[in-house]
């Protein structure tokens, strides 16, 4: 099965697309200091001049190194809070590295446009706004507009695309978001739990779309807690635990170990 997925990409596997070199990511959280959180203690911290005193650090990724090659589909697994999403954001250049470096071929993109959309606007305007936010041109959006709407299936039950998004059901909104996000072609594509969106019919459609995106993209990263969807789409898996890379290898081997680990 794995051979089948690599067909046609054999001569390109040596071209690296993403190199992570001893990558460390640290979050700084304001106002989450343990202990006394009163106004006077905050004031005294400021007066004493300690810049980082009110700030708590979360070391989310600790020294992860790997190299991904063109044509690979890489799954990221690990328990909640193990640093998977953080790692993706660092690869996309959205979170600055504390130490170490990430080198990438082109601009990796995260399949996620949710933050740019506004609930008070119509679906129509959100398609345009989301497309522009992902860096598409107005012409590209115009060319793909109908595909996006059709794919989302929003208009199957009437003319919903001209209504504000706040009037959508949560499933409809999620479908539109995925459709917008998946409309763009990418060099390195990262997908964060996007498969669990919408009803069953839509899930089938989005899985097909992800396979299509993978063909166009150089490398696909997929974060999921669903071992089956990792097995179906990925040929290599990175297993993160507590921000450290615990295992890196072929899907079957890593998932077997992971299932042993979680099954304990």
């Amino acid at each position: 099965m794995a051979d089948d997925k690599n067909a046609g990409t054999g001569d390109r596997t040596h071209v690296p697309t993403v190199i992570a070199d001893e990558l460390h990511i640290v979050y700084r959280v304001n106002g989450a200091k343990t202990g006394k959180g009163s106004a006077t203690s905050a004031l005294s911290r400021i007066l004493r001049g300690g810049e980082e005193r009110g700030v708590r650090k979360v070391h989310a990724v600790r020294g992860v190194s790997f190299t991904s090659y063109r044509g690979e589909a890489i799954g990221l697994i690990g328990s909640n809070g193990s640093g998977k999403s953080t790692l993706l954001r660092a690869i996309a250049g959205l979170l600055p590295a504390e130490r170490g470096k990430v080198y990438t071929d082109g601009q990796p993109s995260l399949l996620g446009v949710n933050a740019a959309l506004m609930n008070d606007l119509t679906g129509e305007r959100n398609v345009i706004l989301g497309g522009l936010a992902m860096g598409m041109s107005r012409e590209q959006i115009r060319a793909r507009y109908q595909d996006i709407v059709d794919f989302s299936g929003i208009n199957e039950k009437g003319d919903f695309i001209t209504l504000p998004m706040r009037t959508y059901s949560s499933g409809m909104a999620a479908r539109l978001r995925f459709s917008i996000a998946a409309a763009k072609d990418h060099d390195v594509l990262m997908i964060d739990e996007a498969l669990a969106t919408g009803d069953r019919k839509f899930q089938k459609r989005s899985e097909a779309r992800i396979r299509e995106l993978r063909k166009e993209a150089g490398t696909v990263f997929l974060v999921s807690h669903n071992n089956k969807s990792i097995r179906d789409t990925c040929d290599r898996v990175l297993w993160l635990e507590r921000g450290e890379l615990r295992m890196d290898g072929p899907t079957d081997e890593v998932i077997k170990e992971y299932e042993k680990f979680t099954g304990r």
Binding site: V15, T67, Y103, T104, D105
Partner: peptide, 22 residues
């Protein structure tokens, strides 16, 4: 591959990869 053992920075330079988020 012939690239094995190459330090990450040199490997990146060889294939024209750039630092993400620079």
């Amino acid at each position: 591959s012939p690239d094995d053992g190459l330090p990450p920075a040199e490997l990146a330079a060889k294939y024209g990869l750039s630092v993400s988020g620079a």
